[in-house]
């Protein structure tokens, strides 16, 4: 457990920074909703939202969202929280394993009487705790933010939580992928670059998929669409199929990472 606590200690300051970022966005994100809500009366906003061609909705990130409702509005904010969470998780996964080789402490830790599995395990779970903490913060702050904007009415909490599960799954997916890349590659710089590319590409593909019906098939390729705000709001729960996909893939990623990490040479100085 010593390695586990060591990792927790090393990472908490960074986590605090990210939490601050989340809270900052929560503070500023809801102010436009009143404007949207005001227009609701004329029913024109809904008409627009429903009849706009796809790309136009995509520009405002409003695809398939009923922005006159608070939950629909929150759906616009959702993608940004998902992005932040994804970046945090992916980078954490990649860095937490590769940092020993990056900082040249590999000759310290890997010559200790512990197996590589236990080192990896301690790091994996310490990182997971961090992910969960960030998730809880995003979840709670969103519930509070939505509730306050809803005139201190917290009935939407259930719907907000639905969306939050999507974020947790996206986090897990990219976290395990980051762990895998760091376990595979000997050079500590490579995994960070790759996971960042994957996350940015996933976001771009997600955007593209919303631009036109011809491109809708792209949604199968990116977690940001598997758990997109519209699908989560409209169906009321995460798509169980995609949950299974994420669980299976995350397990595979972690398994591959664990296997290769034990087999490969550790990079020294």
């Amino acid at each position: 457990m010593n390695m586990f606590w060591h990792e927790i200690k090393s990472n908490y300051k960074s986590l605090l920074g990210w939490i601050a970022g989340i809270l900052f966005f929560q503070l500023s994100g809801y102010s436009k909703f009143q404007g949207f809500k005001a227009a609701q009366g004329s029913s024109s906003i809904n008409v627009i939202a429903n009849s706009f061609p796809k790309p136009l909705l995509a520009i405002f990130g409003m695809s398939n969202l009923n922005i006159a409702t608070l939950i629909g509005y929150f759906g616009i904010l959702y993608i940004f929280f998902a992005l932040i969470a994804a970046i945090y998780s992916g980078l954490l996964g990649a860095n937490i394993v590769s940092k020993e080789e990056r900082d040249k402490t590999s000759e310290f830790i890997y010559t200790k009487p512990v197996s590589r599995t236990s080192v990896l395990g301690a790091k994996f779970f310490a990182g997971l705790i961090n992910i969960l903490i960030l998730f809880v913060i995003i979840n709670l702050s969103s519930i509070v933010g939505v509730g306050i904007t809803n005139s201190n009415n917290f009935t939407l909490t259930g719907q907000v939580t639905n969306l939050m599960w999507g974020i947790l799954l996206i986090q897990t997916f990219f976290y395990c992928m980051g762990i895998m890349f760091a376990s595979i590659f000997k050079s500590p710089k490579t995994p960070t670059v790759i996971i960042a590319t994957v996350i940015v590409a996933s976001y771009f593909i997600s955007v593209l998929s919303e631009l036109s019906t011809n491109l809708e098939w792209l949604k199968y390729l990116t977690p940001f669409q598997w758990f997109s705000a519209p699908s989560l709001i409209n169906s009321g729960h995460v798509a169980y199929g995609y949950v299974i996909v994420v669980v299976i893939l995350s397990t595979i990623f972690t398994g591959i990472g664990w296997y290769i990490f034990n087999k490969r040479d550790i990079t020294v100085v």
Partner: peptide, 30 residues
């Protein structure tokens, strides 16, 4: 490996340690 290393003490030629750790902290962690 792990079992053997209980009884091995290794001094590498170049010493790198974790940031912001005091010597005593590192030694206790070790």
């Amino acid at each position: 490996g792990p079992e053997i290393r209980e009884e091995i003490g290794y001094l590498p030629s170049e010493i790198f340690y974790y940031e912001n750790m005091k010597a005593i902290d590192l030694l206790r962690y070790s």
